[in-house]
């Protein structure tokens, strides 16, 4: 992946309103791998008794990170959308700590990209959550025109 494509993908993701609202920051992106962190925030608490972050916020982080990994893959020509995402919650994230997600696009076809992702807090030996997902591979405009011409 060229540095330019990485920059464009990073820029695109950092302008997504919902990702910004959740305070997400891209720490690594390129060649089908993305890492995004989400600092602890009282507004995202799911269990007021313990202060543990809601699973929904972790889902949003995993989804964004998976999408970023797909977009950064050298064989992904344009945008992407989530087809399916499965998240397994291993343990509650420790209150007060930043959650860091890392996603890898481990296989890509002309139409589908497959990702796996892990979310960690400060204890990097015990994952908070893992995810697997399938994303669409949107053809770039020139490819779409070519396909139409060839009648495929």
């Amino acid at each position: 992946m060229t540095a330019d494509k990485a920059r464009i993908a990073k820029q695109f993701i950092e302008t997504i309103p919902h990702s910004r609202a959740l305070g997400m920051r891209i720490t690594e992106i390129g060649d089908g791998v993305a890492a995004i962190e989400m600092p602890y925030d009282d507004r995202f608490i799911g269990d007021p008794e313990t202060g543990v972050i809601h699973g929904g916020a972790v889902s949003a982080l995993m989804d964004t990170c998976g999408g970023a990994a797909v977009m950064s893959h050298p064989r992904a020509p344009a945008g992407t959308a989530t087809i399916n995402l499965r998240i397994d919650y291993m343990r509650p994230a420790t209150p007060g700590q930043t959650i860091r997600a890392r996603a890898e696009c481990y296989h890509i076809t002309r139409s589908v990209a497959f990702i796996r992702a892990t979310a960690l807090d400060d204890d990097s030996d015990r994952p908070v959550a893992t995810a697997t997902g399938a994303f669409t591979v949107e053809p770039s405009r020139s490819d779409a025109a070519k396909t139409r011409k060839e009648g495929n």
């Binding site: 997504i16 919902h18 990702s19 809601h54 889902s59 949003a60 989804d63 964004t64 999408g67 989530t82």
Partner: peptide
Amino acid sequence: HEELIGNPFLPAIHGGVTSAFLEVTAM
């Protein structure tokens, strides 16, 4: 509301919002 947007060009709701919404509903 605007902060739910995931793709500003379409525009569309963020996949993470949809997921969180369903998770909150289920729970």
